[in-house]
């Protein structure tokens, strides 16, 4: 099943099974069903608890906060992740504060769903992966959609816990088929789940067993899909073997699966589509270099997009955003 369809079914299921769930966002009413059609059918099936909103991101975020304080489980669709900047005050100064600043008297479990990412020619303000600006906000969990994780699991995790979540969905995943590990494989790749108790598990992918891999790659979202294709290609064609670790939760980082893999490979490359500098990979690199100090064969490499605006022209965008060719080049350098 393609990702957007699975996401849509997951929303139907969450609303159907849990009367606390409320969905709101811009242009989500039927028949349109949201800019990426992920919310299709929801206003028809649950008219009381699903509402299309005016173009008012601050209010969407603030009303979600109030719903959560009032005992509901709002899931807010932010039409383009870029627009999360307009929700930032609510996220930083309200939603993630309430539980702690009121000494645990209340919880404020809001989930934001945010379509991110480029490679589609949408230009500077509709293509970004701005999640790095939300990493490290105390009491916020950031979870990334991936082709190897069922989307409902992210909702179940949100509904089972009491903290706010930012769910980042790369737009290019919407038309892709979900290939969660089955029987220890994803296509040609060996696949396993790994992670700490209580955290959404990471998926580990490799062509050969970990002990034969010379490099760990950690990537999330659409970049994980690109990285997996490169891992398979380089293994098949050049016998360059890597293990790819794909987390679902990207903040706080569950280091256990990365640690385990790097312990075997002694090399790490991080890959993300967000811009370079103060990035997710920088944070992962700092921790791994500290915990594996003296045992790494090479410094950790961080691959991120160029720190500039995302051009509208496709030929320029392809150079600026991390693509498969950039990942391949970095892997070859790391293993040279």
């Amino acid at each position: 099943m393609i990702y957007s369809r699975a996401l849509n079914e997951a929303l139907h299921r969450a609303l159907g099974e849990d009367a606390r769930v409320v969905v709101l966002g811009e242009d989500i009413s039927d028949p349109y069903g949201g800019a990426f059609k992920v919310s299709r059918g929801l206003t028809t099936a649950f008219p009381d608890r699903v509402k299309t909103t005016p173009v008012s991101e601050q209010a969407i975020a603030g009303i979600s906060a109030g719903l959560a304080l009032g005992g509901y489980r709002p899931i807010a669709e932010v039409m383009f992740g870029d627009f999360l900047s307009l929700c930032f005050d609510q996220l930083l100064n309200h939603i993630t504060k309430y539980h702690a600043m009121y000494a645990g008297q209340v919880t404020c479990p809001v989930m934001f769903r945010a379509p991110m990412g480029g490679h589609r020619g949408y230009g500077p303000t509709h293509s970004q992966s701005i999640e790095k600006h939300f990493l490290g906000i105390p009491h916020l969990r950031v979870v990334a959609a991936s082709p190897y994780h069922e989307p409902y699991d992210a909702f179940a995790d949100f509904l089972a816990k009491d903290d706010p979540v930012l769910f980042v969905e790369h737009k290019l995943l919407y038309p892709k088929h979900i290939t969660a590990p089955t029987d220890g494989r994803v296509g040609e790749l060996l696949a396993s789940h790994a992670g700490s108790e209580g955290v959404l598990p990471s998926v580990c992918l490799s062509l050969v067993p970990r002990e034969e891999c010379a490099l760990t790659i950690v990537a999330y979202g659409y970049e994980a899909l690109l990285a997996a294709s490169v891992v398979e290609k380089l293994g098949m064609e050049d016998e360059l073997f890597c293990e790819l670790v794909v987390p679902a939760q990207i903040a706080p980082v569950d280091f256990a699966p990365i640690d385990a893999s790097v312990s075997a490979t002694r090399r790490l490359l991080t890959v993300e589509e967000g811009t370079a500098g103060w990035s997710w990979g920088d944070r992962v690199a700092a921790s791994i270099q500290r915990s594996h100090f003296g045992r790494l064969a090479k410094p950790v490499e961080v691959l991120a997009s160029q720190p500039t605006v995302i051009p509208g022209a496709r030929r320029l965008e392809q150079e600026m955003l991390v693509g498969a060719h950039h990942i391949e080049q970095k892997i070859r350098e790391a293993l040279s």
Partner: peptide, 12 residues
């Protein structure tokens, strides 16, 4: 910021 939050409580 408390105004939309109060509206959310009203919706709840």
């Amino acid at each position: 910021g408390i105004v939309p939050t109060a509206a959310g409580i009203a919706w709840a």
